[in-house]
Amino acid sequence: MRELVYYVAASLDGFIAAPDDTFDAFPQTGDHIDMILREYTDTIPTLGLRATGLTPPLTRFDTVMMGWGTYAAEGEHRRGGPYEHLKQYVFSRNHTADDAVPEVTVTDEDPVALARELKQQSRSDIWLAGGGVFASALVDEIDRIILKINPILLGSGKRLFADRDYSVADLNLVASTPYRSGVVINEYTLDRSS
């Protein structure tokens, strides 16, 4: 069964974006970028893939789920949306397919129900791209968290998870890789057996 993976960058104080939904304060250069280009090619926006000449293998992810804020934060979308190489699901209560490019599925469907349905398919994993409110709605479906912790303090902004009543889940650290850039990639699995 495929997993729902929350793969996201965050500041040291737990924010995934500034208050205006931008994330350009996160380091865009450094040795951690080499790893992302090599191991997480599937998560590079289509425009970035074209600029670098990379081809996503779609072995890690072939589907992305995101909230409207994350979709909109990617800026102007040419052709098939920010990740046209992936099956793109954008969740919104206020926007419709008319507000997006045709290759993007905009839905107000229950994200938990759709995540469960998608996880039953035998394909590559599903990337939960954010944001924090959307991740909070799906927290009970997340199987793995890959957190790119950046050596900055934003002070305020969009949190990794929005406030809500969580069911208790222990996180098991399965890998932690520090980079000279100061970025640390931590990978966790969620254990809900307790």
Rank of each mutant, 00 (worst) to 15 (best):
133 V>D: 10
66 M>L: 07
106 V>K: 02
99 D>N: 12
30 G>A: 09
22 T>D: 14
157 G>V: 00
97 A>W: 13
165 D>V: 09
52 T>F: 12
74 E>M: 15
18 A>M: 13
101 V>H: 04
171 L>P: 04
127 W>A: 00
27 P>T: 10
23 F>A: 02
49 L>S: 05
6 Y>M: 09
47 L>I: 09
50 R>I: 08
172 N>L: 12
9 A>R: 05
21 D>L: 11
188 Y>G: 01
20 D>N: 15
189 T>D: 13
42 D>L: 01
139 V>C: 04
16 I>P: 00
150 N>W: 00
15 F>G: 02
61 F>L: 01
85 H>Y: 02
140 D>L: 09
108 D>Y: 08
133 V>P: 03
191 D>H: 11
94 N>G: 02
34 D>F: 15
53 G>Q: 08
105 T>H: 13
160 L>W: 06
67 G>D: 01
173 L>G: 03
88 Q>P: 11
158 K>L: 09
62 D>P: 06
124 S>M: 02
1 M>I: 05
72 A>Y: 05
51 A>L: 08
185 I>V: 13
166 Y>L: 11
69 G>V: 04
131 G>W: 03
148 K>H: 12
135 A>T: 03
116 R>H: 06
67 G>C: 03
6 Y>H: 09
13 D>S: 06
1 M>Y: 10
164 R>G: 00
182 G>D: 11
188 Y>L: 05
164 R>F: 06
73 A>G: 09
1 M>T: 11
19 P>V: 01
146 I>A: 04
116 R>V: 00
170 D>P: 07
122 S>M: 03
32 H>G: 07
75 G>K: 07
73 A>N: 07
52 T>S: 15
190 L>R: 06
133 V>H: 13
84 E>A: 06
130 G>P: 01
156 S>C: 04
55 T>H: 14
87 K>N: 10
21 D>W: 14
89 Y>L: 04
30 G>I: 05
179 Y>G: 05
37 L>H: 15
171 L>N: 07
98 D>G: 10
74 E>D: 05
12 L>D: 10
145 I>W: 03
162 A>G: 10
60 R>A: 06
112 V>N: 14
113 A>S: 10
64 V>L: 12
155 G>R: 15
186 N>Y: 13
124 S>A: 15
130 G>D: 03
114 L>I: 07
12 L>M: 14
9 A>L: 09
56 P>A: 09
67 G>V: 00
104 V>I: 13
113 A>I: 02
103 E>R: 08
143 D>V: 02
122 S>D: 13
90 V>F: 11
11 S>W: 06
123 R>M: 08
1 M>P: 14
36 I>W: 10
188 Y>N: 07
140 D>A: 09
159 R>E: 02
138 L>A: 03
163 D>T: 14
161 F>W: 13
147 L>E: 00
139 V>M: 09
75 G>W: 09
35 M>Y: 15
35 M>H: 14
124 S>K: 07
142 I>W: 03
118 L>N: 08
63 T>W: 06
176 S>K: 08
123 R>G: 15
191 D>I: 06
44 I>K: 04
138 L>E: 01
117 E>S: 12
158 K>C: 03
31 D>Y: 12
54 L>E: 11
9 A>I: 01
